[in-house]
Design a protein around this nucleic acid. Sequence first.
DNA 1: GCGGCATAATAAGCCTTACTCATCTTACCA
DNA 2: TGGTAAGATGAGTAAGGCTTATTATGCCGC
Lengths: 247, 247
Amino acid sequence: MLRHGPLKIRGNRMNTEKKPRRRKSTRLSQDQRVSDILAAANDLIDTKGYENVTMVEIAERSHIVEGTVYRYFKNKDELMLRVAEDWLRLKLADLLDVSALNGTYNKLRYLIWHSLKVIVSKPAVTRYIMLEVRPRESYKTTELFSINRAYTNQLRKLFADAISSGEMKRGVPERLLRDMVFGTIEHSTWRYLRGEGDLDVDELADEIAMVVFHGMSDRQPVTNPLEASLARIEAVAERLEKAVPAG
Amino acid sequence: MLRHGPLKIRGNRMNTEKKPRRRKSTRLSQDQRVSDILAAANDLIDTKGYENVTMVEIAERSHIVEGTVYRYFKNKDELMLRVAEDWLRLKLADLLDVSALNGTYNKLRYLIWHSLKVIVSKPAVTRYIMLEVRPRESYKTTELFSINRAYTNQLRKLFADAISSGEMKRGVPERLLRDMVFGTIEHSTWRYLRGEGDLDVDELADEIAMVVFHGMSDRQPVTNPLEASLARIEAVAERLEKAVPAG
DNA sequence: GCGGCATAATAAGCCTTACTCATCTTACCA
DNA sequence: TGGTAAGATGAGTAAGGCTTATTATGCCGC
């Protein structure tokens, strides 16, 4: 199938084929065109998934021709990046300062909850960022990387507050804790991002915060009878130790 | 640029152009061809990154022509999947049964260490799996998904052992703990997978195991609460025995 | 050795999609 | 109202995945 109509008008005696008519065009302001294109791209990404949108489609939905898109965006990647940046910037604009929240756990839960909200609000673009932008060598020089710093910064505050309140011990590499928090969030959302079912953001935020905060090991009051028994004996031991004069 | 030599031989009076010479071909056994192709694909993926290898290149390096590759692999995706599957299956073949290891922490550390070893052994294919296979809707019906179950199964054993020894409390969704373990591993390796520097597998395994085991909150790095508890009691008992006059 | 033949391998293309560019056209302004 | 800068168009290219008609090779029976 030819993309642009017949290549050659076959001449027959009385040429009944109309010569290809150039479509009527309208000149819009730069801003209007750009926002038309961005809107079209957004719609298409959301409905078809970022990997399936083509420049022709974006152009059609913007009521222009493919070549015109390239007047406003250097290439497809720049357009997609712009969509992602605009969205993420908007979403992170209302991120609270966690220092205002009460307690390490609440701060943590809030950050996790916020990330999940962002992801759920536009899964297709999240996929784009996770699959196309973050893996790049140049990721760290990316605008998206800078925007994401908002989370990193809040997490840093959380750590500072938690250390000064004694809830966290000093010395654990911040990098690792970050990887644990965001790694758990991302891994938890893959099922959703793959299109398998919904996501209960509030419940999941609770669960993730809990597991990340406490880790795998048991630290709650013991339920195991053997341990309970030991705990009682320990308590007695402690009392006796105090009672008996140091010898 | 034409991909396959001149399309049309322009006839001039005395045709001095040699007619396109069909290259000499050799027929190999099915097995030999397949393994040639797989070897070529492997080399190319490792050296150029999976996103940059083309079917023509794979064919050239296998000393055949593009079309021939399609006799042995339905399409590019099937070929790439095969490369990934063969590799991962081989790598997971020697995964130990964690029940043989001593203590939850050691089991955990071993699983993390093993994953990291696998990732480091072929980062280009790891990227392919993480960026192309796992995001698919069909991922769970994939051979790679099945192969990966080896980890899941070992992790399940770890949980079972840890619960029965009292180190972990019952009731935390297994899914979440899995997401924490593997999410932290993956997030920790992105810098490396992006090509930013090396990875000290042993050190990182220790760090991840530590942070995943204990979580963010401050706690003693106790490896076995029962043993720790007994140790404390014994110390007290010893002191008391010395302090209290023999009755 | 030799000829027939199943099928491996080749060469030439097709299709899609990102991107380019010469040409046409429009809106604005003098 | 007409000249013009720049916006918009249509046609085309390149690259890469995939298909297929044709060629020729190695095997097998004789």
